[in-house]
Design a protein around this nucleic acid. Structure first.
Length: 435
RNA sequence: CGGGCUGUGGCGCAGUUUGGUAGCGUGCUUCGUUCGGGACGAAGAGGUCGCAAGUUCAAAUCUUGUCAGCCCGACCA
């Protein structure tokens, strides 16, 4: 494969030396400073080139795993007419958290906070017979929710990228199968992304339906509280009751009524955690199909109502969460799975030999599909080292004085370790690895 | 929506109490020196002091209104 490296000398990026005062969490501060994102308005963000690279990688992993369970990609508009949401009652139910607007003819529109209505209508149009089931449709779309208080950068924005998929089945057993497929696909996704996660029982909220679970990662900046027990049971506090039937939250005040060591229904002591919700899967059941009077024919030519599931995963939130989880005092630390580049090449000195060598390294290692960010800027080497640490590409190749001996330095961002290698050693290390 | 706070060159901030020629750091431009760990010197560019109205000889500073943003709380991928 061919791969064009990115040269920082012609790259429209500017790292910031100081922390912008508006950024409230460390991950967000580094995403700003390292040039991954910029705020455009409260909870609304511009993705810069590095941020785009990471988003693309997240999307690729998500697409691969959803298509592996039979998902087919579509793309609905973000701008939708009011009517489908009136049918389900959600035009009112979402209330102020939904962006509503009018066109020049004064017709009502909305910026979609979620797409259950549209997927149901598409299913109704496409699926008429039991032979059309089961099915999984998904999209990666920008969602809009006018949150009361956006915070922590992309962790909770008013505009955010989400993958949402929807399963269509004929009965509850089929729905269970589709649900389990998604549950497993999500586990694969999180394993590939490199997140520790906990699957937590949840309530369904505005989506409706019955069974519902959330995927959390533990983080001090998390906005949600969930509980776990030694045997692996975990629950969102909203869906939790103690051994003696007490709710975890006062329904009126919202006050947390439980503490570490309280007993769960199974008699085990609980532990409370702060977490970031990265995904939420629901068994919607027939709520939406019923709202549109959608029925299909079974083998006996009887009309039956399909049953659906809805499965969301926050793409832009994953980017932000990774930054919150993986950084040190110098900057971000990307995993190989999500890093915007596989290697950053620092030209610590500037001469023709260095330029030729970086070109040669790219040519050799690109054979294995590795991608490169080359810092060829005409600035002092110190700035390049600092920026490399801020950006957080997992491996940096330093081209400097050792180039005379055909040697380079290979720096690991996460450990800070430095290896001195000949070019041949570099090539064999990465061309042979895993092949 | 309730409580707290902030809007001053790209970014970080001082100046507001006590009205009197808009400042510092960083970044940016140019030249020279330097150049493997955020170099040094010199010369520059860049600001409707969020916006509007008012008070005043005079407003970044005082008054009123308004907009935006941030933090804490109630809702959410």
């Amino acid at each position: 494969m061919t791969y064009n490296p990115t040269y920082l000398s012609d790259f429209p990026i500017k790292t910031l030396r100081e922390t912008p005062s508006y950024a409230d969490t460390p991950g967000y501060q580094y995403l700003i400073r390292a040039g991954f994102v910029r705020p455009a308005s409260a909870g609304i963000f511009t993705l810069l080139p590095f941020g785009m690279k990471v988003i693309s990688k997240i999307e690729t992993i998500v697409r691969e795993e959803i298509e592996a369970i039979g998902g087919v990609e579509v793309l609905f508009p973000a701008l939708l007419p009011k009517e489908p949401f009136e049918t389900t009652g959600r035009w009112e139910e979402f209330g102020e958290s939904m962006f509503k607007l009018r066109d020049r003819k004064l017709s009502d529109y909305l910026l979609a906070p979620t797409h259950e209505e549209m997927f149901t209508l598409l299913g109704q149009e496409m699926f008429h017979s039991y032979q059309d089931f089961p099915a999984i449709l998904y999209q990666i779309q920008t969602k809009y929710r006018d949150e009361l208080r956006p915070r922590a950068g992309l962790i909770r924005g008013r505009e955010f990228i989400m993958k949402d998929s929807y399963s269509f089945d004929l009965d509850a057993n089929g729905l269970d199968v589709s649900y389990q497929k998604h549950r497993q696909a999500y586990q694969k996704i999180f394993n590939r992304l490199g997140f520790d996660y906990v699957i937590v029982s949840a309530q369904s909220g505005a989506m409706g339906g019955s069974k519902s679970e959330e995927f959390f990662t533990v983080s001090p900046i998390g906005e949600d509280t969930f509980i776990s027990t030694p045997s692996g049971f975990a629950s969102n506090v909203e869906a939790f009751e103690t051994y003696d039937g007490r709710p975890a939250i006062d329904p009126k005040t919202g006050e947390l009524l439980i503490k570490d060591g309280d007993l769960a229904k199974n008699g085990e002591p609980i532990t409370l955690h702060r977490g970031i919700e990265l995904a939420h899967i629901f068994q919607l059941g027939q709520k939406y199909a019923r709202a549109y009077n959608w029925t299909v024919q079974n083998q006996n030519s009887e009309r039956i109502t399909p049953t659906m599931g809805s499965y969301g995963i926050g793409i832009s939130r994953i980017l932000a969460t990774f930054a919150e989880l993986f950084h040190d005092e110098k900057g971000l630390i990307w995993s190989t799975a999500l890093s915007p580049y596989d290697f950053q090449i620092i030209q610590a000195i500037s001469n023709d030999k260095v330029k030729e060598t970086s070109f040669e390294i790219v040519k050799q290692l690109a054979k294995r599909g590795y991608s490169f960010l080359i810092d060829d800027r005409a600035i002092s080497a110190g700035v390049k080292f600092k920026d490399a640490e801020l950006i957080g590409v997992p491996q940096t190749i330093v081209l400097g004085n050792l180039i005379k001996e055909h040697k380079i330095e290979l720096k690991h961002r996460a450990t800070g370790s430095i290896e001195t290698l000949t070019l041949d050693q570099l090539y064999s290390k990465f061309l042979l690895a895993g092949s």
